[in-house]
């Protein structure tokens, strides 16, 4: 299973092309998503399923969180996709276009049944739900809490904006509310929130701006459409040395305050409040997960 808990970047690899699947393992994304859905033509669903099954079960890339995106809940492929995907033993199964709690419940139950049939440890495979419509967004909290398997919600902006009759723009004002709604649901459910893709693979500056927003809003990661986006996105979710140093000083001051039983703790002349402490802990958790040497001794 995955040796990293980081989910900064997800990269899709089409189950229709072996070269794509093989190469995708050599980039720096945290999560690799073998896709049975949109990138696979209808006539190749069966062959993609077999290719993904054999790859994940017998040749999964090391040091990656491995996911399989199955076809839609109401497609003719979903049942066999699940049979194959569960038996392939990925870290997670990613479900497209989830709109209702009941859908998530049903899929999770079916996964449990197949796990039992196949003699696998029940509950081990996590589930990510893609939220790709206004309905999914409205029901995000219910979906997020539908089953303990559910590990993350991921915003799919192209389909979402289509459902809203909005125009997808680089600035992304049309998905600003959805980003916040999904993030809020995830925080309350205690699961990860994954932001939508930035589609223009030839605009690194645009990607940086968009990812700045992703991070500032509080997302845990972002889906990438192209390998060249991965390192940029990763960098935004990996705290800088300056940030780590500051976080360490904040927590040191807090600890010092506790030892001295101080009511209010100050650092560099400013008071340290609860949110600052929380942010500092997040920064260090991110750094630790990304393998950055922290140099402190704090939990």
């Amino acid at each position: 299973m995955a040796t990293t808990k980081l989910k900064r970047t997800s990269l899709y690899a089409s189950g229709a092309t072996p070269i794509n699947m093989i190469q995708a393992a050599f980039y720096n994304e945290d999560c690799i998503v073998y896709d049975m859905e949109d990138s696979v033509p209808l006539a190749e669903k069966d062959s993609a399923r077999l290719l993904i099954y054999n790859t994940v079960r017998y040749h999964r890339p090391a040091n990656k969180y491995v996911m399989i995106r199955v076809n839609g809940l109401y497609s003719e492929f979903i049942e066999e996709d699940l049979e194959a995907a569960v038996r392939a033993r990925p870290d997670a199964i990613r479900i497209p276009k989830v709109e209702y709690k009941e859908e998530a419940v049903r899929i999770c139950q079916r996964i449990t049944e197949i796990e039992k049939e196949a003699g696998l440890e029940p509950g081990k495979i996590e589930v990510w739900c893609n939220i790709e419509s206004y309905l999914g967004m409205i029901n995000a909290y219910e979906i997020a809490t539908a089953d303990p398997r559910i590990e993350a919600l991921a915003l799919g902006a192209e389909d979402f904006t289509a459902s809203m009759k909005s125009t997808r723009t680089k600035a992304g004002l049309e998905i600003f509310y959805a980003r916040n709604a999904i993030l809020t649901a995830c925080r309350q459910a205690g699961i990860e929130a994954i932001d939508a893709v930035f589609s223009d693979i030839n605009d690194p500056e645009g990607l940086k701006e968009d990812t700045t927003l992703t991070r500032n809003l509080g997302f845990d990661g972002k889906t990438c459409v192209h390998p060249r986006q991965i390192d940029i996105v990763n960098s935004f979710f990996t705290p800088s040395a300056k940030e780590i140093k500051y976080a360490l000083r904040v927590l040191e001051a807090v600890e010092e305050g506790k030892r001295l039983k101080k009511g209010a703790v100050t650092l560099d002349g400013s008071m340290i409040d609860k949110p600052m402490e929380l942010r500092a802990r997040t920064t260090l958790a991110q750094a630790e997960a990304a393998g950055v040497a922290i140099g402190g001794n704090l939990k």
Partner: peptide, 29 residues
Amino acid sequence: GAFDWVIRSRLQAACCRATESKFNWKGED
């Protein structure tokens, strides 16, 4: 220049199609 598991996957897909049968997913449990 396919890897062994790719070859296996393609053979399985072709066999299923040629024999008009579904893959036996339980076969490797």
